[in-house]
Amino acid sequence: MASTTQTEIPPAPPGRRTRAKSTGRVGDKIFLGLSRGSGILLLVIMASIAAFLTYRAAIAISDDEGNFLTTFDWNPAGDPPVFGIAVLLFGTVVSSIIAMVIAVPIAVGIALFISHYAPRKLAGAIAYVIDLLAAVPSIVYGIWGALVLVPYLEGLNLWLDQFFGWTYIFEKTEIGVARSLFTVGILLAIMILPIVTSVSREVFLQVPRMNEEAALALGATRWEVIRLSVLPFGRSGVISASMLGLGRALGETMAVATVLSPNFLISLHVLNPGGGTFAQNIAAKFGEADAFGRDALIASGLVLFVLTLLVNGAARLIIARRKEYSGANA
């Protein structure tokens, strides 16, 4: 640092400017170093999450006497220790799919409502209300779901069983309160609604006005405008929004842990109480787990981590690709 000041002085006689310049450089270097360092730190954190989880998971899986992928049991404290993620994977995927099937159409509807149907002044307020849904902590959703939603859903379950029981999926073979994967799916749908809505809304607002006005000028009704110009433009955005929502639903812990009454069976009767998800299993089994049991839970968490990483990564790639090609952002 001293050398730079020395080399700078001879060519530029006015002393004040050189001093400012040289301190500026040092400051710049420090500042750049700090900010780049924190960027790198983020990457290090991500890498170490993967590394540490893998390391602990490897300890657990190597001592697992059952098959980690296909065993229908979670008993790492047993002798021999047997545990597997089959039921958890099934429950996680099924509840998330139910959530998506319910949430995505409604979210697209709300996004259209905000972007194209609601009165201009109301639209902002509605968007705000939907954002409030996202601000509610998941544990509050959890106790609301368990204490309010579950009793309310019993009638709906009866209906589904009565009218759609023939589909096998909606056949309710066990009597019991609605602490089922289906109820969890509904609750997750409510929870992922805000993120799917807000991303879709952003995309719908970016639709080139020219396209819409052209359709209107041809005499299209409002629905035809949306079908012909808004939805085709927004399709990839809606897909990535739903994948972001899927990522949320996959990793949700508390809402599932409070609502579901878990068991270790795989059943496509989604109305029957039972099943389990990765996050719910970790929260529920952690209290009673010994050191090895914790490693086993970490192993299941690793699978969840990889799953959400893939889903979120794919969603982000779709968004990024869309940005490159869309004229709106050019």
């Binding site: 983020l42 991500m46 990793g251 996050a279 968490g301």
Partner: peptide
């Protein structure tokens, strides 16, 4: 890379963050 991983990090389930510190 930082931009991409910040995006991906937003999607980390809270329980996985907990498990990381636990490990």
């Amino acid at each position: 890379a930082v931009t991409f991983f910040v995006d991906v990090m937003t999607g980390i389930p809270s329980i996985v963050a907990g498990l990381f510190i636990l490990s």
